[in-house]
Design a protein around this nucleic acid. Structure first.
Length: 104
DNA sequence: AAACTGACTAATA
DNA sequence: CTATTAGCCAGTT
């Protein structure tokens, strides 16, 4: 597992509290521009591994990506709300405000 | 080995 | 803002 996945996890761990990042952004920071899909794939592989704030990773729309089980979706939203991240009526967050800058 | 699938993005209309 | 199209790669079947 010491390869692309580790890189992705490392970047996700770098996301500060109360911030969110998109798949494409993480892919870029990890050094894989355009491989956004692999990010989601790697996160799905975690499947319950703690230590990686996967909840802070959302799609470019600022929404939570629906996967096979919508139940996890709500858990992610709860975790984000717990970090002072506000969702609008459509269940989307203001990327303009909460998107992580990468590293200022 | 070839084909399918999938937590997606960026560009265009 | 939404809808549509094409592109990307690793893991499964």
């Amino acid at each position: 597992m010491t390869s692309t996945y580790e890189q992705i996890y490392a970047i996700v761990k770098e996301i500060p509290w109360g911030r969110v990042a998109t798949y494409g952004q993480i892919a870029r920071l990890a050094g894989f521009p355009g491989h956004a899909r692999q990010i989601g794939y790697a996160l799905h592989a975690l499947s319950g591994n703690h230590g990686v704030p996967w909840q802070r990773v959302i799609n470019a729309r600022g929404e939570i990506s629906t996967r096979s089980e919508p139940v996890s979706e709500e858990r992610q939203r709860l975790l984000l709300e717990r970090e002072e991240v506000v969702f609008d009526a459509k269940g989307r967050v203001s990327l303009t405000v909460y998107q992580w800058n990468g590293e200022p």
